[in-house]
Each structure stands twice: as C-alpha cells, then as structure tokens.
Design a protein around this nucleic acid. Structure first.
Lengths: 227, 227
DNA sequence: GATTAACAATATATCGAAAATTTTGGAGCA
DNA sequence: TGCTCCAAAATTTTCGATATATTGTTAATC
C-alpha cells in the first residue's frame, strides 16, 4: 500500500527519483553548485536512502550530477566556458548525425521530421497565445524535432550522445531564464533547417543548424547569468 | 581495519566495485548476455548490497551494463551489427577530435603524442619479447595514445565520449581473442597516424586513423565470435 | 494433453540503523 | 589575531533484514 504521490510510469523508486531529480536539475529548479544532501532529497522525493543514492549515481555517470568521493553530490557548475564547449560539441555531433541521415534516411525518416515539425509548430502557437514562456510541451517537441533530424544516422550511440547534450543545453536555457527573445523567430529557424534537410541539401541544412545554435549561444551568453 | 583485498586507489567500496566490474566486463572475463546476479557479485567483489548496486547503476548509465527494471542487470550483448556501429561512431568522433587538435594543438599536445607513442612503442616491444599477447600495460598505453591524439580538441565532452567508445571497442577485441594478427603491423599503423598528425596533415592523419579502425573491424568480424 | 491457478523458490528493490568519514566549532596557546 | 588540536555534529557510506517482484513447479481443470 505504498503511497505513490508521483504519476510516473516507472514502477520502482529509483527510476522515479532519477527522473524527477533529472527534471529539477534540467529545469534549473536546482541551482548550479548546489549541494544535494541525501537527507533532503529523501524528503523531497519521498523515497529511501538506497533508491536515492542509486538515482544520484546514475545521474553522475551521465554528467548531470557531480560526485565527490565521501563528500556527496552536487549540481554541476554552469559557466560561459562550458556552455561554449557544450554547444560547440553539439554542433559537431549533430552535423554528423544530420549529414548521415540526409544520405541514408528514407521516407520513414522524412515523415518523422514532418510530424516532429508539425508538433513543434502547434506547441509554438499555443505557447504564444497563452504565456510568452516556453512550456514543457514545447521543450518536449523541440527535443523531438532535433532528434528526428538525426534519427536516420544509423548510430544509436550518436543519438544517445546528442540527447545527453540536448539535455544539458536545455538546462542552460532554463538557467538563463529567457523564453522569448526579441527579433528571434525560432520557429522560422526550425523551418529552414527542416526544409533544407528534406531537400537533401546537406550543406545548407548544416549551415542553418549551426546558425541556430550560434544564435542560441549568443543569446545565452548575453543573459550574463553564468560565471 | 577493513580488509582491502584490492590495491585500488579509491577509498570506498562502490568505486572499487565499479572499477573491478568494469574491468571484468571490458576484458571479456564476463561474457556478453551473462546475468549479473547481485548475490554472486557481492561474493566476488567482497562488498555489500548497496555499493554493488551503485556500481551497477553507474555502469548501466554508461552503457557498460544492461539494466532491466525489476529483473536485474546483465552484460551487454555483442553483435557484429553493434560492433560496426561502434567503430563507425568512433571514426566520426575521433575524426573531429583529431582535426580540431591539429588545428588548435600546441607544443604541449605534440609532446603528449610523442611521449604516448614512445610508451606504446616500449610496450609493444616488451610484449613481443615475452608473450605474443597484448598485455594490460599495452592496452593502457594504446588508450593513452588515442586520447593524446585528440586531447587538444578543446572539448572534454568529446574526449569523454571517445574514451567510452574506446572501452567498448576494447571489449570486442578481448572477446574476439585475437592478440597478434598475421600481416598486421599495428605499431607501424600508429606511427603513421602519429607522423601525419605531427606534420599537421589532417586529411592524411584522418585517413590513416580510419584505415586503422577499418582494419580492426575486419579482423574482429573475421574472428566470427559474435552473432 | 494442454492450459492455467496457486504456491514455493529465487532474486531484486527498499528500508532503517550502524559504521565510517568529513565538517564544524571552540578551547588552548603562541 | 591567528593557529593547531580535539571533540561534537552533520553527512555520507555501508550493512543486515524486510518487502516486493519475478520465475519455476505442481496440481487442478477443461
């Protein structure tokens, strides 16, 4: 008769703690450098010692939590330098994924992109009509779109790496607390990437993708919220 | 007065179990698909429930162990398909790392390569004079050499990813159980990569590096030990 | 004979407390 | 004031036991 306060699909405590803690770090609810004391986490996430430590261990292995031997865990620091490194690496990896997909992708891949863009489009509209903020739904579809682009690269490893990096980028976006930037039409940027990709114009698609991330980087750096 | 049977540097059980289990998987001592029963692992690695589960959790987050909810852990399967994917991805990522390093690397980076090659050379000689097998020492220097090549790419993320992939490749080498292949002069391959790199001839260096991995792939596939 | 229900056996996941380690704070001293 | 040393407090890490889930076996039913 365990009182499951979460609505998580996962059966066990460890996975649900993993997902909830991951969210709180990515959304910026937990601040960079903040110590993650076991006792507090246990209270927050309504679970026990072991599952919580397991969740922390898993997250630390993926770079979303910092582990210090016998000194516990903490949220990774955020700095301009590591943001630059992050987006640079993302450009490199997603360029490969995109080029490979454009070469190898079939109709299934194309359909995936069309649909992913459709949902991103919908989410963008509904966000604009309500708040000016980016909704969790939008984030989900944004992630989905970028994954769809590279999904035909025939390397699940690369896709996994790119997904990890998207998560970390997402954290920086949230930490910067800028949702809608004056003069930026993100949907249009995505559309251009989509169109170039579906036209199988690899060079153009990559160039649009790089520009997309360069713009993101500049806006985030300008927010001046990191060391 | 804990009886520390290992000579590990790490202080706590979790990390020592992590490293030892990682080794046993990478060296192929634990076979693909093999179930990792907690009770047995605890006996093998002389530790308790919690540290062992933590080690497993960490390894699963890095793809070196497969986790199935409420069904425990196991060693990842090995197949020709995933080997191909692995080496393909390695080529992609290390090409980036190498090109970036050739562009950005300074004298420190060059020295690192010279030294890494020197030690690999030494280890190769001492291996040949004794057994025909590859020693743990050789593996260590081999890893070191390939990391040295990309170490000036200015992305610790990329280096980490490449290191992970090297680990997985190493496992396949060990599973294939081929140490010295007739007609292959691995040291010479490494020397060519090194020379092209130090001459800052990116295209040649990359081409030699790709050939190096293509050769490895062919030999491993020919061993016919995977599904 | 095949299918399934109930039960026993096995293994995983979690809990609560003990043990070990690090951090904190203050007393004593130069 | 600044420093070292020591004990108390806080925190992390580990252990042993319990709860929960899965797997395998047997018996009952059609």
């Amino acid at each position: 008769m365990a009182t499951d306060t979460s609505n998580s699909i996962d059966s066990n405590h460890s996975s649900s703690a993993y997902e909830r803690l991951e969210q709180d770090i990515l959304t910026g609810h937990l601040k960079p450098g903040e110590r993650l004391r076991l006792k507090e986490l246990i209270e927050t996430y309504n679970t026990g010692n072991s599952p919580m430590r397991e969740a922390l261990s898993r997250l630390s292995a993926r770079g979303l939590v910092v582990r210090e031997e016998n000194r516990g865990f903490s949220v990774p620091h955020a700095s301009k330098e590591s943001l630059k490194e992050l987006l640079k690496t993302r450009c490199w990896l997603e360029e490969i994924g995109l080029r490979e997909s454009i070469t190898a992708g079939g109709s299934e891949w194309e359909e995936g992109i069309v649909l992913a863009f459709h949902w991103l489009h919908q989410a963008t509209n509904s966000d604009e009509s309500s708040s000016g903020r980016k909704s969790p739904k939008w984030s989900k579809y944004h992630l989905g779109f970028h994954v769809a682009l590279i999904s035909a690269c025939e390397s699940s490893i690369l896709i996994d790496f790119c997904t990890q990096l998207q998560g970390r980028s997402f954290r920086y976006s949230n930490l910067a607390k800028i949702s809608k930037h004056a003069g930026r039409n993100e949907l249009e940027e995505h559309r251009e990437i989509k169109d170039a990709t579906l036209n199988r114009d690899a060079d153009l698609a990559v160039s649009k993708l790089h520009k997309h991330y360069t713009t993101t980087l500049e806006i985030l750096l300008a927010s001046d919220r990191f060391d």
